[in-house]
Structures are given as structure tokens and as C-alpha cells.
Amino acid sequence: MEITENAALVVVDVQRGFEDETYWGPRNNPEADRKIAELLDAWQTSGRPVVFVRHDSLKPDSPLRVGGAGNAFKEYVEERRGKGTGPELFLTKSVNSAFYGTPDLDAWLRAAGVRQIVVAGIQTNMCAETTARMGGNLGYEVFFALDATHTYDAVGPWGWKLSADELARATAVTLHGGGFAKVVRSEELVAAVR
């Protein structure tokens, strides 16, 4: 795998509010935070751009609501902000895709000549997947670090239930099979930038 010198790591919604298991329910992939931290370290050490995305929920009962303690980045993400040798962007959003945030992610990437993005973060099948899909639609070469994401069990229409692992697999199949992104492991990405 070839990762360009200016490939951007897009870290989606790694916020304290996602630790609230009573709100979200059971999650998968307990190693996700360690994998996200490893990607951040590799990107920052190599001088590549990093985008920190924060979800500012408009729902008053959400653990991610503006003004709530859960809106903040997890500690390991916050302590890495501003520590890299490359460009950095902080953006906020209130919808699923980081491409509909402030400031404009697409404009920032294009101005820097970025054509590759790596997506990691929370939730696998929600904001991370939506950001990857839209990145693919906008013409970026997207790498989706599946093991550097996690999600939660969910209930859909007619009482259908899917576990977090099932949802993560569905995301991987959809992104890969639909041509939106290359689904990869974080260690492959770390090795490629070292």
C-alpha cells in the first residue's frame, strides 16, 4: 500500500461521551482507542496532516451535546492535538459526515493538494462510514482503518437487531464492495508511513 506524503488522517468523533455505556449500549472492538492513538502518533511523527473532528450534537439528551462533559475529545486525543509536525485541522459538525462541518473539510484538503484520506474513529457504521463514503464520492482515495473504529449494538425497523460486530462487518463489506474505500488494518497504515 502506498500512502502519499500528504495523506490526511481524519479522526472522527473520538469523544468522552462515547464512554457512556448506559446511553449507547454494548460496544465492540476494545482495542480501537489504542489503534487510533497509534495512527495519530504515526501521522504526527511523519509530518502528515491530521484532521480532528468533533460531533456537536443538537440533541439536549445526547452525551455529545455542546456544553456537556462528553462533548470533549477523549484524553489521549486531546493531549495529541497540536503536537504533530504537519498541518492540523479542527472541525465541528452536527451531522454524520465530516465533509459537512465547519470549516469546510473538502476545501481544506483540496487547498493542500490532498488526494488520500484515512478515516478512523467513532462510530464505525455512522459518522466514520458516512465520512468515508462521501470522501469516495468526492474523488478521494479513502482508506478505512476498520480496527481503529468501534460501534454499538443497534435495533432497526421491525425489531431487527444487529450486534456491533455485525454492523462493523456490514460497514466493511459496503465500503469495500461499493468501491467507497479500501478497508485496511491500522498496522498496515502505520507500516506504510514509517
Rank of each mutant, 00 (worst) to 15 (best):
I3C: 03
E5W: 01
A8M: 08
V10E: 06
V11L: 02
D13L: 08
V14Q: 05
Q15S: 07
R16Y: 06
E19Y: 10
D20Q: 08
D20W: 01
D20M: 05
E21M: 08
T22W: 03
W24M: 03
P26W: 01
P30D: 13
P30F: 13
E31R: 15
R34N: 07
I36D: 04
I36Y: 11
A37K: 15
L40A: 04
D41Q: 14
A42F: 03
Q44V: 04
Q44W: 03
Q44L: 06
T45E: 13
S46W: 01
G47R: 07
G47A: 11
R48V: 06
P49Y: 09
V50H: 07
F52M: 11
V53L: 04
K59T: 13
P60A: 12
D61A: 10
S62M: 00
P63C: 08
G67N: 08
G67C: 12
G68F: 10
G68L: 12
G70M: 03
N71D: 12
A72D: 14
A72R: 15
F73M: 09
F73Q: 09
E75W: 08
Y76N: 01
V77M: 01
E78A: 15
E78T: 10
E78F: 07
R80T: 02
G84P: 04
T85K: 09
G86A: 04
G86H: 11
L89D: 01
L89R: 01
V95T: 15
N96Q: 11
A98Q: 02
Y100H: 14
G101S: 09
P103V: 11
D104R: 08
L105P: 07
A107G: 03
A107R: 15
G113R: 13
G113V: 03
Q116S: 02
I117M: 14
V118E: 09
I122P: 00
T124V: 08
T124Q: 05
N125G: 09
C127H: 04
C127Y: 05
E129P: 00
A132S: 03
G135H: 03
Y140V: 00
E141C: 02
V142C: 01
V142K: 01
V142T: 02
V142W: 01
F143Y: 15
F143H: 15
A145K: 06
L146H: 11
D147K: 10
A148W: 02
T151E: 04
T151Q: 10
D153F: 05
D153H: 02
A154K: 13
V155G: 06
V155L: 07
W158A: 14
W158I: 05
K161H: 14
D165G: 12
D165H: 12
E166D: 14
L167F: 10
R169V: 13
T171V: 12
V173E: 14
V173L: 14
V173P: 02
T174V: 10
L175C: 03
H176G: 06
G179N: 00
F180H: 10
F180D: 00
V184K: 04
R185N: 13
E188M: 07
